[in-house]
Structures are given as structure tokens and as C-alpha cells.
Nucleic acid binder design. Structure first.
Length: 457
RNA sequence: GCCCCCAUCGUCUAUCGGUUAGGACAGGAGAUUCUCAUUCUUCAAAGCGGGGUUCGAUUCCCCGUGGGGGCACCA
């Protein structure tokens, strides 16, 4: 195990979204790549905005995506507790160090961190008030992605609120020191905060960790970064919709990083092997749900049949598709197998397979008009009914053979029978092979539907 | 307003000074398949502008412009 220690430090004040997931992912990847330790720390110092429910969302989402933490809540470790709300004693201890060093003062009941340098009163246009500026020297941020960044922190800032609770900047740095974090990998939105953090590290007399500020994910439409309110922003939504976590992780890894060549679809072990901080891009990336959907489809297509069946089963259960009871296992299995190579996402499954499970499906009017406008569908239907009364329906090949022979005898093509049969049996013009549909549905249902539809012509 | 970061097809990106600027998603056209989807072929599509440095800049530097982020007793 290497000395690298990284942490993901979410605040349970909202849902777990794409941006957080990618920050977690890059931390996790770096830990796995270096053989280091991935720490999960919960930043719940803002009592007003926290909830247990949000905490579980974080745990569930991380686990679903396959990012198990090495230290943290439920896992233990030598530097716990891992929830900031339980670390008051540690913050008090560190606050005393700062006080002893003469780097704090109180004002309006709050504790301020005192910067070093000459002070002057300046009117701040933005905040419309007079503030005290400090002629500080620039903080040097050694960023693994952006290189050397300098920024001057020129105002004292609050580290403990008047109600006694410590502020983010303070606890964040204290915990990174106490938990021996070596690399701080976080979103670029924190880059401007980093000068505060560097000042604190220096005030504590400890070495400043390496930083890596990763680019942000911009919302798909409109300006700005993606937030939890944006369409497609929540991890739990992908979970609910039956997306494959491997696909989501693969997609996320490619937002701001690449393996250095043309490869996109890669197993996680390969991503871990190739991932490194200097390879991360510096510019923000716009979220693209189409590309995610495509990535998901490629993963879905190569999923082993048993695995796909289980995902389908779970999805049908969650969506409560079968209100009147589950279909027979072998039947369900055959339907799902038929749909597997044809769909782009698990969420399409119920609609795609509906007519397999009920007689109560609608005939699409547009498709009906289109199919009935060509050839002699009524005659074809009658011939098909006649054929299927006795034909061998035990295999797709046998069915295809029978229909082809029939078509040949009338100097017609397979398509002349396919379209009208499909419409009668499924109500639409999209679906699995007609032979597969016949085989799985069985003679009785197929004939009944063909006859029922024929009666409307 | 001040500070910080960034800049290649619509989008994600490759290129570590010399390339017909490549790939992927999305889009167009075609082929294959019983429909649809897949798959395959193919087309269209990019170096923000201006200055430098250099024999030569997408690549290095500067200035604009544009985009993003930050400037709380939120995290």
C-alpha cells in the first residue's frame, strides 16, 4: 500500500449528483491506481441542511457505482470518526493551536483567522461596505492538473461561527491534516478557496498537500455548471432507470480524462491502470446524455443473458409492471431474451414487451394505415392463419421456413406476411423477429390475435 | 466590481513545433436483416481574434474576446 491518501468529502445537503460522482470517481481511481487509501468523510457541519436520508443516498450511490471506500463511516479506520459532526473535540484541539500561535481573534462572537501582513481599510464595491484588507504574500498552490497557481488571500475569515460551530474551510483543513490526506482532488469550484486552505496549512505548520482541481461538468443546455436541479443530474435517477453502473462509471471517467488514445469503452481495471492526475483535462466538459445512453447500450448488449434477466426482473419488480401477478418463469425468460439484443436501455423493456404479457395492447393507428395500404393484407392474414394452424412452431428456423415456403408458393416475399402479422400480434411495427414472437407467444395466442385483427378488416 | 481557471468539429476528445488535424456521440446518405434496433460503408463538421517567438505554429508567450468558477457566521 502506497502512502497516497485521498478523500471524498461530500456534504449530505442534497442529492448525489453527476459532478459529485465524478469527483468521487477520480479520487477512487487515483487511490486504486497508486495503491493508496480512499477515505470517505462526511462534511455535515451545517446542521440546518443535513439529513440521514441524504447520507444513505451517498452510501448507496457510491456502492452502486462500485466505489467502496477504505476508511469512513461503516468501515472504520485509524483517523475516525469520519463524520464531522462527531469531531468537535478534534476541532477544539486544533483551534487551541491556532489561538496559542496568536492567529485568531474574536469579533461579533465569531472566531476569525488572522492573516499576516499590513492592514488597511478599503471600500468593497461588490459588497457595498468597508472591509479590512491584508497585504499578504501569494499562496502557492501546487496543482497536479493546472500547474502552479498563485492567489492572494487578503481578508481574515471566519473559522468558528458565533454559535460555536466550525466553518467548512477550517474543518476541511483540520481533517485533511488529521487524516493525513496527501492529495486533495476536488472540483475546480474550490480553486479560489484553496488560498484560504493553504494559509491554514501554513499556520498549523504542516506541509501543504498536493492539490488537483478537476474541471467541472457543465449542464447540457444553457449556461453554468450542472447542479442537482438539472435534467439527468442525479445518480439515483440512473439507478432507478436501470442504467448499468459500469457504463455510467466508464462515461464519467471520460469526462475530463482519456486514456491517451482512441479507446472509450474500457473495463474498470484498465481505467484504473491508465488513470493519472496529469492526464486530467483542464477545461470544463459539457454533459451529453446521448453519449451516456450509447455507452449504456454497448454495455447492455454484451451483458450475459443471465445477468440481463436479473436486471430485467428487478426493474419489472420496481416498476410494479405485473399488477395481476408474475408470468411463468420460462415464459418471462424467453420474452426477455427476445428483447435483449433489441433495446437501448432496461427502461424500454416494459413498453417493448407489453403485448407478450397482456391481450390489452393498442393497435397503432398510423402503422395500421401504413400496413393496410400495401398489397393484400387481408388475404395474407388468412393464408397465415391457415398455415399456423398446423405449422411447426418449435423453432424460429422452422417458422421462418414455413412462412418462406408459403410466400414462395404465392410468388410473394417474407415481408408481405411479416408486416401484417406483426401488426396483428403486437400492434406496432417495431419489435423482435416475427418468428421469435410466434414461437414465444405460442400457437393459441397468435391465432387468436390474427383472427381478432382479421375481423376488423 | 475584484480574483482564479479554461479555449480543437454541435458535444466529449487525440495531437507532447512540421499531420490530408484523428476517433467517439449526435446528424445526413447508403448497405445488410422479416419490422425496429444492432452492425457495416460513407458524407458533412473544428484549431475564437490580434500580435509576437520560430525556417515553420492548433501546439510556446502577450493582449483582447468568449466560457466557467469564486468573492458568506453554505459546503
Amino acid at each position: 500500500m502506497s502512502q497516497v491518501r485521498v478523500r471524498f468529502a461530500p456534504s449530505p445537503t442534497g442529492f448525489f449528483h453527476i459532478g459529485s460522482a465524478r469527483t468521487a470517481l477520480f479520487n477512487w481511481l487515483y487511490a486504486r491506481h497508486t495503491g493508496g487509501t480512499f477515505v470517505l468523510r462526511i462534511e455535515d457541519t451545517d446542521k440546518e441542511r443535513n439529513s440521514e436520508e441524504f447520507l444513505n443516498v451517498i452510501y448507496d450511490s457510491l456502492r452502486w457505482l462500485g466505489m467502496e471506500w477504505d476508511e469512513g463511516p461503516g468501515k472504520g479506520g485509524d483517523f475516525g470518526p469520519y463524520r464531522q459532526s462527531e469531531r468537535d473535540a478534534i476541532y477544539k484541539e486544533y483551534l487551541e493551536k491556532l489561538k496559542a500561535a496568536g492567529r485568531t481573534y474574536e469579533k461579533d462572537g465569531a472566531v476569525y483567522f488572522k492573516l499576516l501582513g499590513e492592514r488597511s481599510e478599503v471600500f468593497d464595491e461588490h459588497r457595498k461596505k468597508t472591509v479590512t484588507k491584508v497585504a499578504n504574500t501569494p499562496a502557492i498552490i501546487d496543482d497536479q492538473i493546472r500547474g502552479r497557481v498563485e492567489r492572494i488571500e487578503d481578508e481574515d475569515f471566519v473559522i468558528v461561527r458565533s454559535d460555536g460551530s466550525p466553518v467548512f474551510h477550517f474543518v476541511n483543513v483540520v481533517d485533511d491534516i488529521a487524516m493525513k490526506i496527501t492529495h486533495v482532488i476536488r472540483g475546480e469550484d474550490h480553486l479560489s478557496n484553496t488560498s484560504k486552505h493553504v494559509e491554514l496549512f501554513k499556520a498549523f505548520g504542516v506541509p501543504v498537500p498536493k492539490f488537483a482541481h478537476i474541471p467541472l461538468i457543465l449542464k447540457q443546455n444553457g449556461p453554468g455548471k450542472m447542479s442537482k436541479r438539472d435534467q439527468g443530474a442525479l445518480i439515483e435517477e440512473y439507478q432507478r432507470r436501470g442504467y448499468l453502473p459500469e457504463a455510467l462509471v466508464n462515461f464519467l471517467s471520460l469526462l475530463g480524462w482519456n486514456p491517451g488514445d482512441d479507446r472509450e469503452k474500457m473495463p474498470i481495471a484498465e481505467i484504473i491502470r491508465l488513470f493519472d492526475l496529469p492526464g486530467v483535462n483542464q477545461s470544463n466538459a459539457r454533459f451529453d446524455d446521448k453519449k451516456l445512453a450509447h455507452m449504456n447500450m454497448t454495455y447492455l448488449l454484451e451483458l450475459p443473458e443471465e445477468k440481463f434477466l436479473e436486471l430485467a426482473r428487478v426493474y419489472f419488480e420496481k416498476q410494479n409492471v405485473f399488477t395481476a401477478g408474475w408470468p411463468a418463469e420460462t415464459y418471462f425468460r424467453e420474452v426477455i431474451a427476445l428483447a435483449h439484443p433489441k433495446i437501448k436501455g432496461i427502461e424500454e423493456l416494459p413498453a417493448y414487451t407489453k403485448y407478450f404479457f397482456t391481450e390489452d395492447f393498442v393497435i397503432d393507428d398510423k402503422v395500421r394505415a401504413k400496413v393496410l395500404s400495401k398489397g393484400e393484407p387481408k388475404a395474407r392474414l388468412a393464408e397465415l392463419i391457415e398455415l399456423l394452424r398446423t405449422a411447426d412452431l418449435s423453432s424460429d428456423l422452422a417458422i421462418e421456413d414455413a412462412i418462406k415456403k408459403l410466400a414462395e408458393s404465392k410468388s410473394l416475399g417474407f415481408g408481405d406476411y411479416q408486416a401484417v402479422a406483426r401488426l396483428a400480434v403486437s400492434g406496432t411495427n417495431v419489435g423482435p423477429s416475427i418468428t421469435g414472437m410466434f414461437r414465444v407467444l405460442g400457437r393459441e395466442k397468435v391465432l387468436a390475435r390474427l383472427e381478432r385483427f382479421g375481423a376488423t378488416l
